[in-house]
């Protein structure tokens, strides 16, 4: 039982990270109907930027952890946003109205490009990082299995909740959010009503990239090692989360993220750790076959 609860805590932590990435997939899919295959690599870039910023801060001597975290958070969000914006501008915007597989192929190319770009610049070997936040609460200390909730896990879950709330407010309350929802429904009509569609789409990419960067930072803190290839698996899993929750739905992305995190953790804990990636892929395949609209998605009526 203790083991089960411990895994629950670990799963929720992992699920938060997946959820943050999944938002980017689901938003982009909602607004332009494409799978931004390079999104996982934006997450990876966010992780690298966080790592480098942590190291630089260490060198200049900013070691008060809350301040350092804040700076890293801002830097990685801003720079990853620029990456997100540039990717959209260069690889996707020229393809609007091209044949239907073109954006996806372009996105795959972009993903390969970004992976190798980071590999060239930062090397192919794994990059380790010293733990920044250590310690935690331990329950049931006397018994055979104790349950540990690290401070880091609390930070991750709290930060995710804060960002998600802020984000939900942006989408539901601001004019940008309204513009986004408008573009989602009908892009031509939105343009006719004076919404700058290109700008709205760009901002969607920027927001998705910023959240992915946060996920990247949390990933570095949580796992302590990264390499240029982490974006691929994390990306596919987050995409699975988005599909599981119902692509296009923000609460769905979060729910899907949590579920994927939990499933993966329990699968590794009780089944086999070697096949944990198979679990995520198998879920993806099953969801797409049996419930392509996901848990919270709207059914799609085929327009003839």
């Amino acid at each position: 039982m203790e083991y089960f609860i411990q895994q629950l805590i670990n799963g929720v932590t992992l699920g938060s990270i997946y959820g943050l990435i999944a938002i980017g997939y689901t938003m982009v899919y909602g607004i332009i109907g494409m799978i931004n295959f390079a999104h996982g690599d934006i997450f990876m870039i966010g992780a690298f930027i966080s790592l480098i910023t942590f190291l630089v801060l260490g060198i200049i001597g900013i070691t008060w952890i809350p301040l350092a975290l804040l700076i890293v958070l801002l830097v990685s969000m801003i720079i990853a946003s620029i990456y997100g914006w540039t990717v959209e501008r260069l690889a996707y915007r020229p393809l609007r109205g091209s044949f239907r597989l073109a954006p996806l192929i372009s996105a795959i190319g972009m993903s390969i490009f970004l992976q190798n770009y980071v590999q060239l610049l930062q090397g192919a070997r794994v990059r380790p990082m010293q733990p920044v936040i250590s310690g935690g609460f331990t329950f049931l200390e006397g018994s055979a299995f104790s349950i540990t909730v690290s401070y880091l896990q609390i930070v991750i879950v709290l930060l995710t909740i804060i960002l998600m709330t802020a984000f939900a407010l942006i989408i539901s309350r601001t004019s940008l959010g309204r513009a986004q929802r408008g573009c989602e429904q009908d892009r031509t009509m939105s343009a006719l009503l004076g919404i700058n569609v290109d700008r709205t789409i760009s901002l969607t990419f920027v927001m998705g990239a910023a959240l992915a960067a946060v996920a990247g930072m949390l990933f570095v803190l949580y796992y302590g090692v990264i390499d240029f290839y982490i974006g691929f698996l994390a990306g596919v899993k987050a995409f699975t989360a988005a599909v599981l929750g119902g692509i296009g739905s923000l609460p769905g992305a979060m729910l899907g993220g949590l579920l994927i995190g939990l499933i993966e953790t329990y699968w590794s804990a009780y089944f086999s750790i070697e096949y944990k990636d198979v679990a995520a892929f198998a879920i993806l395949v099953l969801v797409l076959i049996f419930r392509p609209t996901g848990l919270l998605g709207k059914p799609e009526i085929e327009k003839v």
């Binding site: 020229p94 372009s106 795959i108 972009m110 490009f113 992976q115 060239l120």
Partner: peptide, 17 residues
Amino acid sequence: EEFRMLAFGGLMVAIMV
């Protein structure tokens, strides 16, 4: 060698555009 995949990715995007 290490530029190979970089070029691959870039080429895929460029061709699509």
